[in-house]
Nucleic acid binder design. Structure first.
Lengths: 185, 185
DNA sequence: ACAGCCATGTAACTTGTTACATGATTTT
DNA sequence: AAAATCATGTAACAAGTTACATGGCTGT
């Protein structure tokens, strides 16, 4: 949904053609978000199908200029007016992976957590490195994106640590049970 | 990708049929992740097409039992062995929305940020409420999922605050320019 | 002439997802 | 007998994504 609405948002600033949309989108995201041009055109077709954009422009122009329709304007206003709500359940690959690993006794959950932690911390360092550079460049979009990725990565590390802690606590409890009352046979 | 791999992970614990997979998946995610049964069957078809699972079982059974293949075993081992890497760019609806709002002067970015902040904090309170209950129930899967959602929501709030701060700083800088040297005409 | 960008588009495919049809078995 | 649950499946669509074909225009 974000791609469609992203292009629609760009079109709400004025009619343009597909190739320009690609460039606008990329420049507004600080060059961090590159689009395959083909995708822009397919998305435009689908937006037209849904009545959110319409061909607007001098017939006889080789470039196909699209403009936003009233319905499109309404859609984009709604988008900005409504907060983004997380889907329940969150489509979170890491979470599902850990939960499934947890229940499968053939899988080394600890290993999964540790490998993920290492990888995420590496990413965090890379982001921090990039941010030092971006801060001097004053590219607001790119800086904000990096902020977001850093905060997310930090949250992920914290979650991994929490998982470890809860696992240790659970294992300790199970251990205590086996020692005091023989535990599960 | 996570749905497919999720079912495959379940099958790596032993062959079963579609309906059972649905129940396993839901119970292992603490009931937080409900599946449409139809999706399980379509996903199984696709896994079979890709050679990751194969019909395994007594012919003549009314239930279609599937087992994991060697290729499937390899795929699931890889999944657990490799950390989940964030796609660059992150497909983050909130981030793209804020970045696009930032560049469009017809949009009230401050409003977008504030409405999102309110909504996210509300969610945070709801998660916290649910967690108090889950903590007593000792449902590890559900507790871990809530942990993840809480940490993510907190990170989101922090990011929104950071955005606000950076916007204020930018506006202050622009203001200073207009006052001292006349600024942009 | 040739490289490279501007520009448009189509075909094909993937995953996720829902709505619907169908019937057997079990519980109330 | 009716309701619920078990169980399997298909049709259809949305959204994202890539690979490819095609041609004009511009600078060297």
């Amino acid at each position: 949904m974000s791609m469609k609405l992203g292009l629609l948002a760009l079109l709400s600033d004025g009619p343009t053609h597909g190739y320009q949309l690609k460039h606008d989108f990329e420049s507004r995201t600080g060059g961090a978000w590159l689009l395959n041009v083909g995708q822009v055109y397919t998305t435009l077709q689908r937006l037209e199908r849904d009545g959110l954009v319409a061909p607007a422009g001098d017939d006889g122009d080789e470039r196909r200029v699209f403009g936003i329709t009233d319905a499109g304007r309404r859609a984009i206003d709604d988008w900005y007016a409504e907060p983004v709500v997380v889907a329940a359940p969150p489509r979170d690959e890491l979470a599902i992976k850990v939960l499934l690993a947890l229940a499968a006794d053939a899988v080394d959950v600890r290993g999964v957590l540790q490998r993920q932690r290492t990888a995420t911390i590496e990413q965090l360092q890379e982001y921090t490195r990039l941010k030092r550079q971006a801060d001097t460049d004053e590219e607001l979009a790119w800086v904000l994106l990096l902020d977001a990725m850093i905060l997310k990565a930090e949250a992920e590390v914290r979650w991994l640590d929490l998982c470890e802690a809860r696992l240790r606590r659970r294992d300790a409890a199970a251990d205590a049970t086996t020692k005091t009352d023989g535990g599960p046979r």
